[in-house]
């Protein structure tokens, strides 16, 4: 007993109580803004809720989810979008970061230019892209036609076979600078002495990149990949502006579809059903993230 008393007293002296009290506002905010809403969602799984009144519908929402072809197609589109975005953005931003980190003349100007889209709101630059993508005398079509790459204008946002590529281009443009900055900060943590010694050993640029830069960047790379995967699976703002899921639901991703179920201007809000889909979407993204974590750990073991 005496011992215990001493332990408690010592903890107090360590500032345990103060720490708890200091953390409590943040924890309180977290509970109010994040944890409570999450559990709030669960209340409506079994209801048709329009914002005023909840009508009990049993398992209807869950059954409906399994037969909702538009939703499952949107899951596919989410993967399509995320893969397109990641496959282009990450290597490209790494490449740009490596080039810019060499401190060649003008690199800080380019750093600013590449970073610029990050500070512009996604809905604003998406709106600008709707003009760039215009079919009739649109700047992109006119340019491609004048250099002879295409013979007839492409309906970038209205053609089902082009729309995801067009959306991915906007996503890459918007995300490139952000990941470039992450990579730049990772690159700056690699000591220049290592590069100097590899140079003395006669390593060429390719060897330096694959044998030194990439392995030494790997802890940072893992975090960047994790961030990139989760954000690209959750992106939907620019899709809402560019196509609102069209044509014929071809560009709906999970969250644009869910958003439309709650905030659509043409039908009553279906909050209960949207809740079920949100939970499913969270599970899917959670599974993808978990899979990535496992793979990343496996890779660690190999390396």
């Amino acid at each position: 007993m005496k011992n215990n008393g001493r332990t408690i007293r010592r903890k107090k002296e360590d500032g345990g109580l103060a720490a708890v009290l200091m953390m409590s506002p943040a924890v309180l905010m977290l509970i109010i803004t994040s944890i409570y809403p999450f559990f709030w969602l669960f209340r409506y799984i079994l209801y048709d809720y329009n914002g005023f009144t909840a009508y009990f519908t049993g398992l209807y929402n869950i059954k409906r989810m399994f037969t909702d072809t538009v939703f499952w197609a949107s899951v596919g589109h989410t993967f399509e979008y995320a893969i397109l975005k990641l496959v282009i953005t990450l290597p490209l931003s790494l490449l740009i970061a490596v080039v810019i980190s060499k401190n060649i003349p003008g690199s800080s100007l380019f750093r600013g230019i590449f970073f610029l889209p990050t500070v512009i709101s996604a809905s604003v630059y998406s709106l600008i892209f709707t003009f760039i993508y215009a079919v009739f005398r649109g700047p992109l079509n006119t340019m491609l036609q004048s250099i002879g790459l295409i013979s007839a204008p492409i309906d970038w946002l209205g053609d089902p076979s082009w729309v995801m590529i067009s959306i991915a281009i906007v996503a890459v443009w918007g995300g490139l600078g952000n990941y470039m900055v992450y990579f730049l900060s990772g690159l700056s943590s690699i000591s220049s002495e290592i590069y100097e010694s590899s140079m003395i050993d006669g390593a060429n640029a390719r060897q330096t990149f694959f044998r030194i830069t990439l392995p030494m960047l790997s802890p940072m790379l893992k975090v960047i990949l994790l961030l990139a995967i989760t954000t690209s699976f959750k992106d939907y703002q620019s899709i809402l502006v560019l196509t609102n899921g069209g044509p014929n639901n071809r560009s709906h991703v999970m969250f644009s579809y869910i958003y439309n179920l709650i905030f659509s201007s043409t039908s009553t809000p279906q909050i209960g059903y949207a809740t079920v889909l949100s939970i499913m979407a969270a599970l899917i993204i959670g599974a993808v993230t978990a899979l990535y974590m496992v793979l990343a750990r496996k890779l660690d073991d190999v390396v």
């Binding site: 709707t130 003009f131 993508y133 215009a134 079919v135 009739f136 204008p153 309906d155 209205g158 560019l242």
Partner: peptide, 21 residues
Amino acid sequence: MFPGSNTQGVDAMRAQFANGT
């Protein structure tokens, strides 16, 4: 149908009409 009009905003199309296209 005016090409691409299905994905253009209402004001963009009003401007096109006023432009005689």
